[in-house]
């Protein structure tokens, strides 16, 4: 059965007609062609698909599109400033080499932004714990942890 789903994606209204079983990530990637949100697994384990729904990090592979009806969705494409300059968390990943192949990166950045909200002094231990739902096969996490700590500070001082 086809249903209509309407939501705000990166600040713009989006309305799609999809099968009921369609996942949110499929709508983002296939219908809206926002291919920055990635799919790395089929068991909700890797976090490559992480986006924000109403300001909270969620795994877009493990929810149906219809669960996002009326929601505010933010994907990696909507994170940088309007002039194209990087969000402080993105900039921190670049400065601290928190990415290699880039495939886990959108999910990492989306999760990180939510994770450090209001925690400018988040510790290494807390960051590592906060990354339990995100897999990276390239970086060994060392520089991701550094990036997130720096991004947390930068986000706090940008406010």
């Amino acid at each position: 059965m086809t249903i209509n789903v309407s939501m705000q994606v990166n600040g713009k209204a989006a309305s799609v007609n999809v099968e009921e079983r369609t996942l949110l990530v499929t709508v983002l990637r296939e219908e809206l062609r926002l291919t920055g949100t990635h799919v790395g697994c089929d068991t909700a384990q890797c976090g490559a698909c992480t986006v924000h729904m109403n300001g909270k990090a969620v795994k877009s592979c493990s929810m149906l599109a219809m669960q996002a009806e009326g929601a505010q969705i933010l994907t990696i494409e909507g994170v940088a400033h309007a002039d194209g300059s990087l969000h402080p968390m993105q900039a921190a990943f670049k400065e601290h080499h928190g990415l290699q192949c880039g495939f886990c990166t959108p999910g990492m950045v989306m999760n990180a932004i939510d994770l450090v909200q209001g925690r400018p002094n988040i510790t290494e231990e807390e960051i590592r714990h906060g990354l339990e739902g995100n897999l990276c096969r390239c970086t060994g996490y060392h520089n991701i942890v550094k990036s997130i700590a720096a991004g947390a500070k930068a986000m706090a001082s940008a406010k």
Partner: peptide, 11 residues
């Protein structure tokens, strides 16, 4: 990095 960080990578 810019393209990967902004979702503009092309896999």
């Amino acid at each position: 990095d810019y393209r990967f960080l902004t979702g503009a990578g092309q896999y």
